[in-house]
Amino acid sequence: MSYDVVLGNQFYLRDLVEEISLEDSLEEIAYKANIRLAVTSDMPSITPGQSIRISGTPYGGSGVTNLLHPGVVWDCSSSNSGRKHIGLTVYDRTIYLAKSEDERLMPAGQTASQRLKQYAKDWGIPIGDVTDTVETLARNIKRSQSIFSMIQEDLKETVDKGGDLFRPRMTSKGLELVKLGSNKKAWKLETLEDVTQNRTLEGAITQVKVLGAQTSEEKLSPVLAVEKKDTEKFGTLQKVIQDSKIETTAQAKNAAKRALLGIQETFSVTAPDINTIRAGDEVWLNGISLWVTRVTHRLGTPGHMDLELAAPNKVRRDYLA
C-alpha cells in the first residue's frame, strides 16, 4: 500500500519516505504524524510552518484519500549516520487551538456546536460538518486557558446535561464535530497480532454524591443526589461531584448515574493496519462493541496499528473526569 507525502501542495516526497506513523487520541485534538525522510541533493527545503499532507489508499477501498490534511510541519530534525535523514513532526491545523490561549465570556443559551464554530472562525480554521450537540449551555467566563480546553469544557457540559459524547476532528473539509461511536463502518478486529486485557478496580466508582452550591462557610453543601451500584459486591468507592452547572435534582441524579462504574476493563491490541480508524471510532473485538481511545498507525506494506480500546460507559465516565 503506497502513501504520498506532499509538501506545500507542490513537492511529492513519496520516494524519500522511510517511515510514517500517525497518532490519534481522545485526550488530544490534533492528529499527529511522524515522518522520516532520506535526504537527497535535490529535495526541497523543509521548515516549520509549511503545509503538508499525507494521503493513501484507504484500507478495504480504492483510489486515494487524505489521511492527514490540512497539515502543518511543526518540528524538523536532521541526523547523519553515513546517510543523512530528516525527521518531521506534523499536526493537523487544530494544533493551533491546542497551543493558543484566550479569555472569553460565553453567553447562556449557546450549544457546543455554535461555540466550536466561533472558536474556529476566530482562528481562521475552516468548518466542515459540525453535528448539532442540541444541549444549551450555561453562561461561562472562561479564564485564561487553551482554546482546546474551552472546547472540552463545552463538550463536558453537554454530556453533563444528558447529551451525547462528541470530539472535534479535522478533515479535508474542515473542522468537524463527530459523535463518538458514530462511524458508518465499524471494523471487526479478527486478524490480531497481540491482545492484552486489563481489568482493575482502580478508578471504579460504586457511589456518587452530588452537592449543590455552598451557601455558608459554617454549613456543609446541600446534597442534591446520592446514587449507588454494586457497593455490596465491590465495597463503597465514593466520588463527590460539585458543579455549578448542575441546577436541578434530576440533573444531579443523571450526573451521578453516569459516573457510576465498576471494574475498569481496557484492551490493548496490535493488528494489521486499518489506516482509516480514528480515536472515537467504534470497533468490534470478540463480539464486544468498544471505542478507540488511542491509535497509532505504522503505515507501510504491510502496515501495523496499536489500539487502546474501552467500553462506551468507561469512555463516558473518563470523559467527565
Results as ranks from 00 to 15, higher is better:
156 K>Y: 01
156 K>M: 03
157 E>W: 02
157 E>T: 05
157 E>R: 09
158 T>F: 02
158 T>K: 04
161 K>G: 05
161 K>I: 02
163 G>V: 00
163 G>R: 01
164 D>Y: 09
164 D>I: 05
164 D>G: 07
165 L>H: 08
165 L>A: 09
167 R>G: 10
169 R>G: 09
171 T>L: 08
172 S>K: 01
172 S>W: 00
173 K>I: 00
174 G>N: 06
174 G>T: 06
174 G>Y: 05
174 G>A: 06
174 G>H: 06
175 L>M: 04
175 L>V: 03
175 L>T: 03
175 L>S: 02
175 L>I: 06
176 E>C: 15
177 L>N: 01
177 L>F: 01
178 V>N: 08
178 V>T: 12
179 K>Q: 12
179 K>N: 03
179 K>R: 13
180 L>F: 05
180 L>V: 03
181 G>K: 09
182 S>L: 00
183 N>A: 02
183 N>F: 02
183 N>W: 01
184 K>W: 05
184 K>G: 11
184 K>A: 15
185 K>W: 05
185 K>D: 13
185 K>P: 01
186 A>C: 12
186 A>D: 12
187 W>Y: 13
187 W>H: 11
187 W>S: 06
188 K>P: 09
188 K>M: 09
188 K>L: 08
188 K>N: 13
189 L>M: 13
190 E>V: 09
190 E>W: 02
191 T>R: 11
191 T>P: 01
191 T>Y: 06
191 T>N: 11
192 L>P: 11
192 L>N: 11
194 D>I: 00
195 V>I: 14
195 V>F: 05
196 T>Q: 15
196 T>I: 14
196 T>E: 15
196 T>G: 10
197 Q>I: 14
198 N>G: 07
198 N>F: 10
198 N>R: 14
198 N>I: 12
198 N>P: 04
200 T>D: 03
200 T>L: 01
200 T>N: 01
202 E>R: 11
202 E>M: 07
203 G>L: 10
204 A>I: 06
204 A>V: 06
205 I>F: 13
205 I>N: 13
205 I>V: 15
205 I>T: 15
205 I>H: 14
206 T>F: 07
207 Q>S: 14
207 Q>I: 05
207 Q>P: 06
208 V>W: 05
208 V>K: 06
208 V>A: 06
209 K>S: 13
209 K>P: 08
210 V>Q: 12
210 V>D: 14
211 L>N: 01
211 L>I: 00
211 L>C: 01
212 G>Y: 11
212 G>I: 09
212 G>M: 10
212 G>V: 10
212 G>A: 10
212 G>K: 12
213 A>R: 14
213 A>W: 04
213 A>Y: 02
213 A>Q: 12
213 A>S: 12
214 Q>R: 15
214 Q>Y: 07
214 Q>E: 14
215 T>K: 15
215 T>P: 03
215 T>V: 09
215 T>M: 07
215 T>S: 12
216 S>N: 11
216 S>E: 05
217 E>G: 14
217 E>C: 11
218 E>T: 15
219 K>P: 00
219 K>L: 04
220 L>R: 08
220 L>F: 04
220 L>I: 02
221 S>C: 00
221 S>E: 03
221 S>L: 00
221 S>R: 07
222 P>A: 03
222 P>S: 04
